[in-house]
Amino acid sequence: MQPNLNKQQAELELSLIRKVMEDSRKAVYETGKQGTFWTLVMAPAILLNYFMIIFNTGIEYTGLLWLAAVLTGTAGSVVIARKEKKTIRVKTFSGKILTSIGIAAGGTNVIFAAASGFFGVFKPVYIVPIDSVVLGMAFYLVGVIQQLKSLKLFAFVWWAGAVFFFFFPSMHCLLFLAIMLVFMVFLPKIERIKSA
């Protein structure tokens, strides 16, 4: 029997295709576990560094503290990535972009921190505002891709903090960074992992 496809059937067919495509595109398996782990390592390191400066104790171990934090963060990220590779059921382009944004932002911040902390290219007090600019950019892009207004809003807070500490540099910017990381990275990520 010769099948005929009329206008209504074609419309139905197209709407089903659209529905399946939209549903599949939502499957972005970006749990954000690596970012959460980095925050878990970085926030205490920043706080420790802040108290070292405030109480003027153990300053000579600052380099060692950051080296240990970066190495721990990197090693943990690699372990998490390997585990996730085994359980991932679908790969999407947007998932790749989200992962790339995380890696790019993390790598950029490590380079800026090393340029100042280890090589003295600029004053260490500007590490935090520069890192905040980069994090703001990362939050904004992730917010656009995942269509999350809250993340885009967080981006503006990162940028506002960055502008403030560019004009009023102080050691308290470390406290700002630690608090921002906890409230704007760690807590939302836990929420997202729970709902995933």
Binding site: L5, V90, K91
Partner: peptide
């Protein structure tokens, strides 16, 4: 009505159309 000779009968099946719609939306699944 549409002439079925013009349409790709490999895709023109509800389940295969849906499979293609899934796979075109992701890199691999």
């Amino acid at each position: 009505d549409f002439n079925y000779h013009e349409i790709d009968d490999v895709i023109h099946s509800r389940i295969r159309t849906a499979i293609m719609a899934v796979l075109i939306s992701v890199d691999e699944a």
